[in-house]
Design a protein around this nucleic acid. Structure first.
Length: 416
DNA sequence: TCTGGGGTCCTAGGACCC
DNA sequence: TCTGGGGTCCTAGGACCC
């Protein structure tokens, strides 16, 4: 980057976000061991755990059944995505008053470029405390705030500030702040990279920073160089290097479903594909997008997973066209009888719209889209099952599984 | 212990083109 | 004749994040 004045970056991270939101809706959960993500006997993993539950070793991504074993007295709660979106938006509204350059990095964390806001909000610590108080007051939720000269260090410092804290890493102190931390604390260093680093005797970020760049380059290529920069606190390469608030259009839309029980029932599998295709297309239309590449994901009983993709000659957002591709991929790759655990439908390679359609073809296409958008509005009003469109494609299109589609809370029967 | 769902980014090989 | 080199697109898989 340039050698202009150092930036001031805030990273705001909500504390135990899903759990905290659930507590607002059910105050009796407060202070208890709470696990959000599903019931104790369900397939699936923990989305969030209260600090009380964490004392027993429960953490996000842990299988629910394991969590139930580690913490038998925990209260298990289904997730409510719409509640989390609502509170995420409340947080976003507060953030916007502190800086015009805000970027939500996920549903519960955001970056703010606070460079040059001193006259308005005072020095960084004062601004951070004001922000912290405003979020508390307006959402009744706690957060932690990291302040630094880069996104990377701000993120690491908000993590060190948890829970409910503010931590400022002074300009020039980045490397010293990072040095004693485990390499795993660097965003982008996961299980696998951590292991390779450990195998080389590298445990702390300081060990990493002390290495020759040429060594990291040889060992890990481009990634190694970026890693060297990160160890020194720089937003070296990739996403971290982009300007805050400049995030572009999303690049893919997907839906997937894990069956409560593995199945080899062709009808059930194909009706699930139809439902997933509809969900994907619906979101394409909501965002005004047309996808050229369609991908099927197939996970078997033994957890082995394949993906098969196909690119279309022209982009589409029509259910039937996507489903046709997905179904062809499915029929070409699924061996009848093989037990399936998960199915997924993924759309990517977005284009603004169709280009050079023949007039007639284009008209027909357009009418389809109008019909589908109208159907979407009806579904919004009267519920998911209110509308179905004939597609001309045969085979259990409107069949439904008896399971609750993930991400559609409150629909369908739940165990327990 | 038995492993969700929604994303992003990277790598690597083959096709194809110049 | 005895094997170029770069660019781009496509597909498959996997690491990683929340």
């Amino acid at each position: 980057m340039s050698d202009s004045l150092p930036k001031t970056v805030f990273h705001v991270d909500m504390d135990a976000f899903f759990v905290s939101v659930e507590e607002l809706f059910d105050p009796s959960l407060k202070g208890k061991a709470v696990v959000v993500g599903g019931q104790r006997n369900e397939r699936g993993v923990v989305s969030a755990a209260s600090y009380e539950a964490r004392k027993f070793g429960v953490h996000s991504a842990l299988p629910l059944r394991t969590a139930a074993r580690l913490c038998p007295h925990a209260i298990f709660v289904d997730g409510h995505p719409e509640r989390y979106r609502e509170y995420s938006q409340k947080v976003y509204a507060v953030l916007g008053r502190f800086s015009p350059k805000v970027e939500m990095a996920s549903i519960d964390e955001a970056y703010l470029d606070m460079t040059g806001t001193e006259r308005l909000h005072g020095p960084p610590l004062r601004a951070a405390h004001a922000l912290h108080a405003a979020i508390q007051r307006e959402t009744q939720l706690n957060c932690s705030i990291g302040i630094a000269t880069s996104r990377l260090v701000a993120k690491v410092s908000s993590d060190q500030a948890k829970p409910n804290g503010v931590l400022w890493v002074l300009p020039g102190q980045e490397a010293r702040f990072l040095a004693p931390l485990e390499v795993r604390k660097i965003p982008g260093v996961g299980k696998v990279l951590e292991k390779s680093l450990h195998d080389l005797g590298i445990y702390k970020v300081g060990d990493l920073a002390a290495l020759e760049e040429s060594f990291l380059d040889e060992r890990f290529g481009e990634w190694g160089l970026a890693l060297a920069g990160k160890a020194r606190g720089l937003d070296a390469g990739g996403w971290f290097d982009s300007e805050i608030g400049a995030a572009g259009q999303s690049k893919s839309i997907s839906h997937e479903h894990t069956f409560n029980q593995d199945t080899a029932d062709a009808e059930q599998l194909e009706s699930t594909l139809a439902r997933l295709s509809e969900m994907v297309c619906r979101r394409l239309r909501e965002h005004g997008l047309h996808a050229r590449t369609v991908q099927l994901k197939l996970r078997y009983k033994d957890f082995s997973t394949i993906t098969r993709a196909r690119s279309l000659p022209r982009a589409t957002q029509v259910d039937g066209e996507i489903l046709e591709q997905v179904r062809a991929l499915f029929r070409a790759n699924w061996k009848p009888g093989a037990q399936v655990r998960l199915l997924g439908v993924h759309a990517s390679s977005f284009e603004a719209a169709e280009g050079q359609l023949g007039l007639l073809d284009g008209r027909k296409h357009q009418r389809w889209q109008q019909a589908l958008s109208a159907a979407d509005r009806l579904r919004d009003k009267y519920g998911e099952d209110a509308v179905s469109l004939a597609t001309g494609l045969k085979g259990g299109f409107r069949e439904r599984t008896h399971e609750n589609p993930a991400g559609l809370p409150g629909k369908g029967p739940k165990n327990g």
